[in-house]
Design a protein around this nucleic acid. Structure first.
Length: 341
DNA sequence: TCTTAAACCTGAGAGC
DNA sequence: TGCTCTCAGGTTTAAG
């Protein structure tokens, strides 16, 4: 079994850099486009869509996409001028534009989701779950294919709420921060913390949250209510970079080391973003079906049995939260907290 | 309130 | 060749 697991090709999941690459690829093609057709091939990909909001297909058909927005690993597309089920909205309004916060198409890629831009008459992609046909004023007709092997991802139409801090809710590019939807967030994303690349991310708030957390630091990094956008790969990479053991109680980290770790998180995410995300195979690709290159830059994740790039000792893999942690047992040692002065 | 574990889910690779 | 087993992990929910 051990040899089996080390021989196996791992499948990276979409984390912040991969989702941002998808958002960047989609934004020019979908912004200003009208949804002319919606086909749902697997209802399980609508598991986050609440029936009370209305019928998924009817809510989307005829709507115009205002932008592509991201917070952490969540993507959403604010909508206007929606065609409404039976011509009515819950509050009796005549269009989505008249709803207080409006609505948005929310997408989460889960572990294996992809959003692919296709020609309108392209054939069915393998594992295609949802297909949107859009009409863009400049680019003409296009198709968005939501492909997902394990169906941990989903799409949903959700209502927009004002962001809790009144700031711009997510990243949608530098030029559209004053749009009506900019300070609104889908209700199902509202509990997700800002990601560390977000200008409104509050370092002090994050460090204070870590200081009062008793659980291990990796568990805290993976908790999207504490900091969003980090998954198993980049948690392992940032912890390796900061020389912190994954089970180190978060509250035991010194302020200095916690700041170092946050800086390392940002470094890893920026670098991965610059390299187009992490791909080992076709499980993660951009909207054109192309792979990223960050897998070549990994220092810990997936490198069990190989020498640590820093000290030369063997990278280890350990079971952690129904997944794996990859670390250098020499560089990343569990540290006892300093006794209180 | 905080922490932890379980459930969801399925294609693909390895072993026989 | 074909069957069986194992593996990957983000999010939500329930339980402690």
């Amino acid at each position: 079994m051990g040899s089996k697991s080390t021989m196996r090709v791992t499948h990276p999941v979409p984390e912040l850099p991969e989702v941002e690459v998808v958002r960047l690829g989609l934004a020019p093609a979908v912004t200003g486009a009208t949804i002319t057709g919606v086909e749902v091939f697997d209802e399980r990909s609508l598991k986050r869509h609440r029936a009370a909001t209305g019928d998924f297909v009817e809510l989307l058909t005829g709507s115009t996409i205002e932008a592509a927005v991201r917070r952490g690993k969540f993507l959403w597309f604010p909508l206007s001028n929606g065609a409404l089920p039976n011509g009515a909205l819950p509050n009796g309004a005549l269009s989505n534009e008249l709803l207080p916060g409006g609505t948005a198409l929310v997408a989460h890629l889960g572990m294996s989701g992809q959003v692919l831009l296709r020609e309108p008459n392209a054939g069915m992609d393998h594992l295609l779950r949802i297909r949107l046909t859009i009409e863009h004023p400049e680019h003409g007709e296009l198709a968005l294919h939501f492909v997902d092997q394990r169906i941990f991802g989903s799409m949903a139409v959700d209502t927009l709420l004002p962001s809790a801090d009144g700031q711009v809710a997510g990243y949608s590019g530098p030029a559209v921060v004053d749009a009506p939807w900019a300070r609104s967030i889908p209700s199902q994303v509202a509990h997700i913390a800002r990601d560390p690349l977000d200008e409104a991310f509050d370092d002090g708030l994050f460090l204070a949250r870590l200081a009062r957390t008793r659980s291990g630091i990796k568990r805290a990094l993976l908790d999207q209510r504490v900091i969003s956008g980090i998954g198993n790969i980049y948690a392992d990479e940032a912890l390796w970079g900061a020389r912190v053991h994954y089970e180190q109680p978060a509250g035991d980290l010194s302020k200095r080391r916690a700041r170092l770790l946050l800086a390392e998180v940002r470094t890893v995410l920026h670098k991965a973003l610059a390299e187009g995300g992490t791909s080992f195979d076709a499980q993660y690709v951009n909207v054109n079906g192309q792979s990223g290159y960050f897998a070549h830059s990994l220092n810990a994740y997936g490198r069990q049995g190989q020498p640590c790039a820093r000290c030369g000792r063997e990278i280890r893999r350990a079971a952690f939260m129904n997944r794996s942690s990859h670390f250098c047992a020499y560089c990343q040692r569990l540290r006892r907290p300093r006794p209180a002065a």
